[in-house]
């Protein structure tokens, strides 16, 4: 069946269509750090990569396998991290992502994978700092 038009919020559709920030970090100055979470039983796999320079995230990219909400969440997080100071990063958990994306409850398991990838990234980033 076709994906019903009403199932996805405008935010999800916008991020899904553009997948802004998908791909790998281009070579640049600063330290590259990544964080990843995989849960194939939930059909979600997310990897964030950031470049940190002078205490700030100067670039952020993601790679992801998953449903439109998973891809949109990864894209949204990548966009928010870019430019953020490492000591004052925006807080994201699955609940806030669900609110921002207007995601249905059954997507929480997948959004938790995005949250886990972000936690892994931040732990690695603080270790580098």
């Amino acid at each position: 069946m076709s994906a019903p038009a009403t199932r996805y919020s405008a935010t999800v559709r916008s991020h899904f269509r553009s997948l802004a920030g998908a791909g790998d970090l281009p070579p640049a100055a600063g330290a590259a750090v990544s964080g990843e979470a995989v849960a194939l039983d939930r059909l979600a796999w997310v990897r964030f990569a950031v470049r940190i320079d002078a205490g700030r995230i100067v670039d952020c990219r993601f790679r992801a396998f998953g449903c439109p909400h998973t891809l949109a969440a990864a894209s949204l997080v990548a966009g928010r991290l870019r430019g953020a100071p490492i000591d004052a990063l925006p807080a994201f958990d699955a609940g806030t992502l669900a609110c921002e994306l207007d995601a249905p409850a059954e997507k929480m398991g997948r959004l938790l994978v995005v949250e886990d990838a972000l936690r892994h990234l931040l732990a690695n980033a603080h270790r580098v700092q």
Binding site: M1, S2, A3, F16, L43, C67, P68
Partner: peptide, 23 residues
């Protein structure tokens, strides 16, 4: 390497087909 729901949304409006999950 393809997630079925994302593929259906990608095709939405262009192709009406069924997925392995739903058909």
């Amino acid at each position: 390497g393809i997630e079925g729901e994302s593929l259906l949304l990608e095709l939405d409006g262009e192709i009406a087909a069924s997925s392995g999950a739903a058909c």
